[in-house]
Amino acid sequence: MGSAGDWCTVESDPGVFTLLIQKFGVKGVQVEELWSINDCIFENLRPVHGLIFLFKYVQHEEPSNPVVTDNRLENIYFAKQVINNACASQAVINMLLNCNHPDVYLGPELTKFKEFTMSFDPYMRGLTLSNSQTIRAAHNSMSRPCLFEFDAKTPSKEEDAYHFISYMPINGRVYELDGLREGPIDHGPVNPGQDWLDIVCPIICTKVNTYLDNEINFSLMALISNRKMVYERKIYYLTEDTRRMQTDEAEQEIRNLQMLIELEDTKMMTYQQELARRTHNYLPFIITLLQILAEAKKLMPMYEKAKERALKRDRNLQA
């Protein structure tokens, strides 16, 4: 495997995904976590370019619909997953490279990557992705520095493996992109006038229910157009309208949108702050803190209390 190996695990968090996409040089999109799945949840998120379903990988299931192996593959970007830790980036890139929406700007890095690998088969695409210095650097910049050698030495147990699959409309059909499959899974056509979300929701609901029954951890995220951009565009049109015809309603709407933009700005700042913490080396802080507690003779009392809590926890687990 060589250099393909040193990919760090990244957290499955909408902030991490949003910043990761920006790091790739992509503009016009962001990722939001979905807490439930129904029609109204998408109301404030449209347009939704794709959905990412993340779960603790348990076992191989048979695909519910046919796997595409015909010449449609020439027009669908599908890369096979070569290494596990890269799968977050891989899921996002698979999705971005299939996006044809005018809101989505791929940027030079991914455009170049797509041109370079488009003629490759899914396995070669996956391999090229795992060996891409720039993509790996962006991916690794989202995770905690590996402080201790034991992190690298201890092979992660199979039960800790998380898996990402994505769903999106491509050329009028809904596909499931799962890097562990031989190809995309075809979930059927989107009829004229039909919303692709209406097709994908029942599929995901079925999946969610089986995972709930088996107490498997999962989360669902949506790749959507950059909110701030969408709000600014709305304000622009409303301002144009009010020039012709002044209405209180439009002005109220503009005020609302401005408030939403402020919330987006705050959210992005929080993401940056969380990333700074996530990637910070806290070792000097921890050592200094332990020394401070030791000098104040508060270290052993802290430990005793923590031990008591841990014993209680273990007893509760056994009971």
């Binding site: 705050t266 700042m269 929080t270 940056q272 702050q273 990333l275 700074a276 913490r277 910070h280 806290y282 000097p284 802080f285 200094t288 803190l289 401070i292």
Partner: peptide, 13 residues
Amino acid sequence: RLAPHVAPPTSGA
């Protein structure tokens, strides 16, 4: 003593 070891500040806070 701990202040130099916190995460670097961002535009947020």
